Amino acid sequence: MLSPVIAGVDGSPESLAAAEWAAREALRRDRPLRLVHVRDRHPRGHSGEPANAAQRQPAPRALRQAVERMRSVVPDVLVTGEHVDGPATGALLKAAERADLLVLGSRGLSGFTGFLVGSVAQGVVARATRPVVLVRKGEEAEDEHVPAAGGAPSIRTGYLDVVLGIDLADACDEVIGFAFEEARSRRARLRVVSAWQPPSSTSLGPGDIALVDDPERAEEWQGFLHAVLAVWRDKYPESEVLETVVEGKASTALIRAASAASLLVVGRRLPERPTVPRIGPVTHAPVHHVGCPLAVVPHA
Rank of each mutant, 00 (worst) to 15 (best):
L204S: 07
P60M: 08
A183R: 14
S251K: 03
D85G: 07
P50D: 08
E82H: 15
R28A: 06
Q55T: 04
V146M: 12
V231E: 15
V120P: 04
D161C: 03
T89L: 10
L242I: 14
V228A: 05
L242P: 05
D30E: 13
C172F: 15
V120C: 01
L116Y: 11
A121R: 15
E240I: 14
V135A: 14
S259Y: 10
V146N: 14
A62F: 00
A66M: 11
A179F: 06
R256V: 02
A195P: 01
A230D: 08
V162K: 14
N52F: 03
L27A: 06
A230L: 10
R39P: 00
D40V: 00
P32H: 15
G205I: 13
W232Q: 15
V266Y: 07
H145A: 06
A99M: 12
L263N: 07
A285E: 15
L270G: 04
A171Y: 09
L254A: 08
L242K: 12
G123S: 06
L294Q: 06
V135K: 07
E247T: 12
A95S: 10
A250M: 02
G177S: 07
E216N: 10
W196F: 01
V163D: 11
G118W: 01
R39A: 03
P147H: 13
R107W: 05
R187D: 05
V133Q: 13
A17R: 14
S15V: 00
V265Q: 11
I6W: 05
L63R: 12
V124Y: 14
W232V: 03
C172W: 14
A258H: 10
S110T: 10
H289M: 04
A88Q: 06
L78V: 08
E68A: 05
L92D: 05
S110M: 04
I209G: 13
T89S: 06
R256P: 01
A169S: 06
Y159G: 05
A22P: 00
V297S: 02
S251P: 07
A210P: 01
P293G: 02
S251D: 05
A62Y: 08
S154Q: 14
G158D: 08
V162R: 11
V193H: 04
V146E: 15
R233L: 03
S200T: 06
G114Q: 03
A99C: 08
R217A: 06
D213T: 04
L263D: 04
E238Y: 10
R28T: 09
E181M: 14
R186G: 07
R189A: 13
L164D: 09
E219I: 11
D214F: 07
L263Y: 11
L211M: 10
D234A: 04
R31W: 01
A96Y: 00
V77G: 03
L225A: 09
E144T: 15
P75F: 01
I6K: 10
G111P: 08
S262A: 11
R187L: 07
A257I: 13
H288F: 08
P32W: 07
S154M: 09
A121M: 13
L101S: 02
E25Q: 12
T244Q: 12
I176K: 14
P4C: 08
L254Y: 10
